[in-house]
Design a protein around this nucleic acid. Structure first.
Lengths: 161, 161
DNA sequence: TATTGTTATACTCTATAACTATA
DNA sequence: TATAGTTATAGAGTATAACAATA
């Protein structure tokens, strides 16, 4: 993610900055949304990859942790991935022996996805480690700032849904 | 992006929510950051794909628009992509006849990437269209909210860099 | 030797749509 | 017929590292 071949700079384009449109008042907010997220994502994903998982795989494990299992469809919904894509992700997690498919009684056309003991262990060790890694940064915001930021982001999200 | 095979729900996992860590005060902010960005990204990228470009390709065109051209390295920096990846992206944009490589005088080991007339046209038509599409949503924030959100996001970004 | 890009390798994820097997 | 997943296809972007050409 980072530490590729050297990336220090700041992303501009996805933010959409051009003379013609640069006058729009919302551009700076959009720009900061993208930059803040990207800075977060780079920080987060770099750590996840160091732990030996892809972001998508981490997502699935985080989703399945502390549950009794979920179907493919449920996990696909939660992780914003299509069923077809999820099949591949689960295949790779099965190869790593972190997740297994179990046919539930009563409905043989779906699977329950369940963390294996190794998967549980990853969840229990890797997950808190990762949270702690994120906490280091986020906690430099004051409680007040967190509160404000949260509610503004929530409102913004609402506008796109 | 959306309109895949049906995605309505809300992403949970990348946000990292688990009992063990759920007590952390920063989790809700992180969660909203991810959700807000994703809602934005889905909205934005869906529109970009409708216009016939991938997000990465749009990025490059937006970066090159209103410039006299930039080198591979410069564009790679701005778009947060490695040189190797950018080679492929530029290849595809050259196939579409939207960008060309030009060897500058004086330094024959680099290229200037320049929008072709077709590329300029895409930039001039597609870009404002896209900005207008985004504006619809962002402008439902009050000026005050924009201002606050911008500065909070900026601070947050600073914590990750 | 250092810099700028390209190439090679090997994956992971993506979208779309057709298909299988249940129900 | 409708539902839950898989498979097939074809990209597109990712990382990493070795490589060529130029400076």
């Amino acid at each position: 993610m980072k530490s590729k071949q050297s990336k220090e700079s700041e992303k501009e384009s996805e933010v959409g900055v051009a003379k013609a449109a640069a006058r729009e008042a919302f551009i700076p907010v959009m720009r900061e949304l993208v930059r803040a997220y990207q800075a977060y994502a780079v920080y987060s994903q770099t750590h996840i990859r160091e732990l030996g998982l892809t972001p998508a795989q981490f997502d699935v494990i985080a989703t399945l942790g502390n549950t009794d299992g979920m179907t493919m469809g449920e996990v696909a919904d939660k992780t914003l991935v299509t069923k077809g894509t999820l099949t591949g992700i689960i295949d790779r997690l099965e190869q790593k022996n972190l997740v297994r498919r179990e046919v539930p009684e009563g409905n043989r056309r779906c699977f329950m996805l369940i963390l294996t003991p190794e998967g549980e262990q990853v969840f229990e060790e890797v997950f808190p480690t990762h949270i702690a890694h994120l906490k280091e940064r986020f906690e430099q915001l004051t409680p007040d700032e967190m509160q404000q930021l949260q509610s503004l982001l929530k409102k913004l999200r609402g506008l796109f849904e």
